[in-house]
Design a protein around this nucleic acid. Structure first.
Lengths: 152, 152
DNA sequence: CTAAATGCAAAATTTTTGCAGTCCC
DNA sequence: GGGACTGCAAAAATTTTGCATTTAG
């Protein structure tokens, strides 16, 4: 597949900084990568890998789903994109239903709970007034726990 | 399978209120359900369905994995347990890597972003001082969006 | 040219479903 | 007894991997 780069589009700035980010991360600027990122950057609905793939198929009929998965994983690893608040592919459960928050160690995947009353009582931003009916508010902190820091 | 109820254990209170919650929700108190909840209530690691199943197999050798899935789904639906910050089984992505937060409509699964600087600048609870190295702090608000409220 | 990235196909993982039999209430 | 629940098996859905080929730098 010929690989003429197209950094134009609805938001050229994003594409240019994407190019720079790839260069900095040592990632090659392939046609597929460029288009996957462009599609994601334009999307406002936090799409799943398969959703992105479907949308891209119109432009890139030969793009394979596994390339989308690999590309998203790679871009996420290099901090160019984010995975939205999902732990991994597995769902995780708890019996604690009182108001509380989560600490997630990105290295060992351990999840622990903590309390934060000041947050629970704080006032939400004005822009949310009209969103709908809020039910739960949760904080998730991501980082590396002491155990993992000490052992590696 | 004979179904003698055992509401004892490390935390009898939890088991008793579980029994009441089931009764209130019209859920039958089966042996499996009781044990699945007991195991989850004792667990401190927010286990996945498969993890729970493995642990339970020692006590309930015939317990099937699909019963664990069905039971967790049912208990979650009735608010007896919580699914931890996973949207669904599918991962969702975004290209926005600046600090921001998420609003999730539990009905239509729409995810939208919002800013909350006051939160970003707030001081974390003391108990987290020694946890490790924090990297990201995110708020996730769950509720039902206006569109869904109006249309249903 | 060379290491990295892609596409294809196949496998692995996670979750859901149909159905017949079992158990709670 | 009757409807809810379970186990089994099979399918669906999601994600990962091995390998030959192609491509960016």
């Amino acid at each position: 597949m010929t690989n003429r780069r197209d950094l134009s589009g609805p938001d050229p700035d994003k594409m240019v900084s994407f190019e720079q980010a790839c260069k900095a991360a040592g990632l090659k600027l392939t046609h597929q990568r460029l288009e996957i990122f462009r599609e994601l950057a334009q999307a406002k609905d936090h799409p799943a890998a398969e959703t992105l793939h479907k949308r891209l198929l119109e432009r890139l009929p030969t793009l394979s789903l596994d390339t989308v998965y690999r590309t998203l994983a790679s871009l996420e690893k290099h901090g160019v994109i984010c995975r939205v608040d999902t732990m991994e592919s597995q769902a995780r459960f708890e019996a604690e239903i009182g108001q509380h928050h989560h600490l997630v160690c990105t290295r060992c995947k351990e999840i622990s709970d903590f309390q934060w009353e000041a947050f629970d009582l704080s006032t939400l931003p004005d822009e949310l007034r009209n969103w709908g009916q809020l039910k739960r508010r949760n904080v998730t902190l991501h980082g590396v726990c002491r155990k993992c820091l000490d052992s590696g």
